[in-house]
Computed example of a mutant assay.
Amino acid sequence: MSEIKEKFPSESLGSRKRILITGAAGFLGSHLCDRFVKEDYHVIGMDNLITGDIANIEHLFKLENFEFYNHDVSKFVHIPGKLDYILHFASPASPIDYLKIPIQTLKVGSLGTHNLLGLARNKNARMLIASTSEVYGDPNVNPQPEEYWGNVNPVGPRGVYDEAKRFQEAITMAYHTFHGVETRIVRIFNTYGPRMRLNDGRVLPAFIGQALRGEDLTVFGDGSQTRSFCYVDDLIEGIYRLLMSDYAQPVNIGNPDEITIKQFCEEIIKLTGTTQKIVYKELPQDDPKQRRPDISKAKELLGWEPKIGRAEGLKITYEYFKSLSSEALEKIEHKDFTTFNR
């Protein structure tokens, strides 16, 4: 880490609004850093790099309106000077990660959120938390509206992530109602795009990674489970609009175009031109059978809906993965792709 030069704010910060983005070196966090730098904010990125990759944000280090703190938000968080906004995106977000580091997953959702809400209160800053469609668990309702309370197993293999996010929503709303902190809650559905990790256990990078390495593509169950995939640029736009809105209740942001895992696998085979076959394995415990957002609120309140179709987004994402070195692909073990159809 010696090559990373952390910068700290000077006393004269100018007129730029200042935003803290946690999980800044992650997939979504890095795209959010790009967006707010582009909007001429002073962006403070924070990440302990337990799952993030500094390469995702190193292009920003040369900019005077970007700084980076290598810090774990589960510990006390101090930011000098004024702060206008906080985006809390620090959390393991894939099955591979939260099964390997379950305690850290719970701590960043609970202690980390508590620390940042305290910071938001102290700085009089508006805070948006990244929740997830996983709060709905294995849903009995499809599509899932924000009013649906979910069907979650708190002690199952996914419980450390699902319950961390459900607690995160609860404490955020408590700070909003009891302390008057301005808060926003985004429930993120399956998102994809450049900077995803090939070894994070989620369905899209798993399929593409297997195709690029010439391996058979693994589908769990019979492939009838459904997912809906939102391209990252669309998601970032939705998050931006929610942050700037005056709505404090949870809002689904995702693409309602639903597809089965088997159909999606076939799309990846066609996209990549692989000749490998589909192999089926036992469905993991608590794997959601359906996942599709009801985005009525996002349409009504934010004027938002996804613009980028799956064919276009997948082509961009595939080109990104193809650009990775062959050495990087070879280092990723096959077992990393056999966890969940998330």
Score class of each variant (00 low, 15 high):
S323L: 06
N48I: 00
L106K: 03
V155N: 03
G214A: 11
T183Y: 01
F340W: 13
F337C: 13
K82S: 09
L20H: 06
L242C: 08
L106G: 13
V279Y: 05
I19A: 12
N142F: 00
S296D: 05
E146R: 03
L106V: 05
A328E: 14
A248H: 13
F167K: 09
G81L: 00
F207G: 12
S30E: 03
L13V: 06
S10P: 08
N56T: 09
D246T: 04
A55M: 04
F66C: 05
P139C: 04
T22W: 00
S131Q: 10
L99W: 10
S2W: 05
D233F: 00
N255W: 06
Y192P: 15
I129V: 14
A164I: 01
H78D: 15
I171S: 11
L204Y: 07
Y85G: 01
A206E: 12
E327L: 13
D34Q: 13
M1N: 14
H114S: 10
N255C: 11
V152I: 12
D257H: 10
V203L: 13
P293M: 05
S12R: 07
V77F: 02
H31E: 12
T275S: 15
A211I: 01
F220I: 08
L283N: 12
L271E: 09
S133E: 04
I86H: 07
G238N: 09
A174R: 00
T272M: 09
D294K: 00
I261G: 11
L198Y: 01
F61E: 14
K107I: 06
S12W: 04
W149P: 12
I208W: 06
L329G: 07
L271A: 08
P250M: 11
I236H: 09
D234L: 06
G52H: 05
K165Y: 01
K297D: 14
M46D: 05
L324N: 07
H42T: 05
F207Q: 08
K281G: 11
K262L: 14
D286M: 00
V219S: 15
L111E: 15
R342E: 11
H88L: 03
E58G: 06
T338F: 11
E3Y: 03
Y175M: 08
F76G: 00
H42A: 03
S228L: 09
G180L: 04
I295Y: 07
N70P: 06
P143T: 08
V73P: 02
N70Q: 12
G109C: 07
S15I: 10
E182F: 00
L99P: 08
D138K: 14
I308Q: 07
G45D: 06
L116E: 15
Y98I: 09
S110E: 09
F321V: 12
Q168D: 10
Q104C: 00
